[in-house]
Amino acid sequence: MDAIRTLTSTAAPLPLPNIDTDQIIPKQFLKRIERTGYGDFLFYDWRRIQDGPNAGQPNPEFVLNKPEHKGAKILIAEKNFGCGSSREHAAWAIQQFGFSAVIAPSFADIFFSNAGKNGIILVRLTDEQVQTLLSRSTANPNHTITIDLEQQTVKDDQGLHAHFDIDPFRKYCLLNGLDDIGLTLRHADALDSYEQKHDAAFWLAPKSDALVTATPETR
């Protein structure tokens, strides 16, 4: 996971609330068993014309198809971004398309976690601040935003200066590109002793008929 301290970029405005992960990456792309190659499928249906003689062609009206927003590393959306399905493919698609950060008033819980595991910076600003950024990026595709993770600030080239909150541990992991599993395994001793006691409470095991075969070798 690559660590990011500050990010300065233009932004792609997506002024809609409740954008669900089915829109971010439709189901037909979840059949793949790889972890890469999802960028082209980001907002697949929204990026294409749905009906009529040009069905299937790129929709020139959709923000990600507009040449002036090409190369934007920041996505801006309204509240409850990433709701619905737990598919981490949504975070992969956002990142692999080229976004490093998403700014919104709120995010759904599972998406919030998935994005963090992939080093995507999620910035929660107030409704008003998000509306300001959305309208500035819509009016001017060269509108440039700087996210400083260390300072927890968002600034733009038109004078916006906002502070955002982030869980200190999440910030630490993002800044250092840390592997979660490695972090948990620092507590291997605590885990071993917890598990030993916990296993003794047999009804907590999922498969009571499998317990007899759960020897230390299977650990």
């Binding site: 972890r35 737990s86 599972i110 976690s113 595991k117 979660d180 599993i181 972090l183 948990t184 395994l185």
Partner: peptide
């Protein structure tokens, strides 16, 4: 949970 967390559970039987 997402797939990274699935891997976490497989490796550690825990989640942060």
């Amino acid at each position: 949970i997402g797939t990274s967390e699935v891997e976490h559970v497989m490796a550690t039987q825990t989640l942060p």
